[in-house]
Design a protein around this nucleic acid. Sequence first.
DNA 1: CTAGCACCTATAGCATTGCTATATGAAGGG
DNA 2: CCCTTCATATAGCAATGCTATAGGTGCTAG
Lengths: 240, 240
Amino acid sequence: MSLDIQLPPRERLLQAAVELLANSEGAPVSTRKITELAGVTAPTLYHHFGDKEGLFDAVVAVGFEQYVASEMDLEPTGKPLDDVRRMWDQHVRFGIEKPHLYLVMFGKVRPGNRSNRVSEAEALLRGKLDRAAEAGHLNVPPADAVRSILAANIGVTLMLISEPEKERNFELSDMTRDAVITAVSSEAGIADSATPVGASAVVVAAIALNAALESSNPQQLSNTEMKMFLEWLHRISKTT
Amino acid sequence: MSLDIQLPPRERLLQAAVELLANSEGAPVSTRKITELAGVTAPTLYHHFGDKEGLFDAVVAVGFEQYVASEMDLEPTGKPLDDVRRMWDQHVRFGIEKPHLYLVMFGKVRPGNRSNRVSEAEALLRGKLDRAAEAGHLNVPPADAVRSILAANIGVTLMLISEPEKERNFELSDMTRDAVITAVSSEAGIADSATPVGASAVVVAAIALNAALESSNPQQLSNTEMKMFLEWLHRISKTT
DNA sequence: CTAGCACCTATAGCATTGCTATATGAAGGG
DNA sequence: CCCTTCATATAGCAATGCTATAGGTGCTAG
């Protein structure tokens, strides 16, 4: 039941924590299980990490470095706002692929006590947004843009994580991403909302009809007709 | 140290839980402190609520009802999307005013396991958005709009809660709110002031869709399907 | 009036949790 | 060879969520 590979205990503890964190679906992981799997006793853990939270911080630091690295691997596109979009996507992907790590990083909110990881993620985003601002692509201060984008990004990721895997609809991410980024950017100002991207009069009308039908069922169509009608309506409502 | 007011133990437990939850700044609240403050022993708690989580659920249910009530108190403005904006603001205000309750509701995310409160909040929003859709103010299906808005709303609220009270910048909320709502909305509503009095929303929407289809034929339906679809649309458009 | 029954509460204690006071071992420098 | 320093282990504490069991308490049936 212990990691036989003879590494220094510190590394074994980290490895054990990662493994248990990954396999226990969101359930709390005890220090005892960790030390047991690492083949080590309790004081060793506290000698090296001081705290359970210290150990988890170390684990998260590793994960966060991977996340940052995966972002740094990508070359800047030249359009800073496109970089921001890509960063958003990386963020979401990281959360989906390693939910346990992500939740340790961003999941436990405390009043008046912002977590380090949030600050670090903010700094990362800030870099890109400063460049966007220099290029005149922002219509709000970068500091404001960062907070808005990051808040939405975390909110979306948490929501996707909390959804059953099968039901996950990533359009949610794209939609919200473009919404907040467009809002802070001066490229396509907020004002042109009258002609939203990809929306056609047909889609708008189809959605409206669908909603209206749900609240009152007219008698002009039989049940089977209505069923088919609704399905087609649904298909029309789906853009792209 | 105990609540002297002689209420039924169940109520005393609820009251004690609320009080401790409110005063302990985000720190975990133990069942022992709760039962002690309520002047009651452990089994009583488990008899009435089954679980610590059960007790907290009951507490949260009370808080949520207040939240819903505060929303219901407001009369609809007539513009569904304005109602949505107000709902967003109510959500944020609730989170700021009762962070402990809010965090119990929305703070503990588990992979693949959406919380009841999220679903309930979704249903609330959904009501308003359906009306917006009926009025032709949406350019995405209401279900998608709900998720995007709610995810951003929760994200923003969590971020505001996690910030030191002095630094809180509520512009973050307004900015993000308008961003996501604008993104899902088509202010060029099809059924705005031109809505004939007395005509049902279904008929209006059907006529609008018919008109929209005449100018652009979508690819989602085959020719035969489209033919039948148009005929049914026609039947629906005929007022009885 | 009393026997029985359902409901509610208390006594006492279990297993697990994070963490630590203290002791033991090993490695290196004087 | 001793002494310091670092790293690990023994054993156990206090707090946690929860429960097996038993004891009231009030209501209804006989």
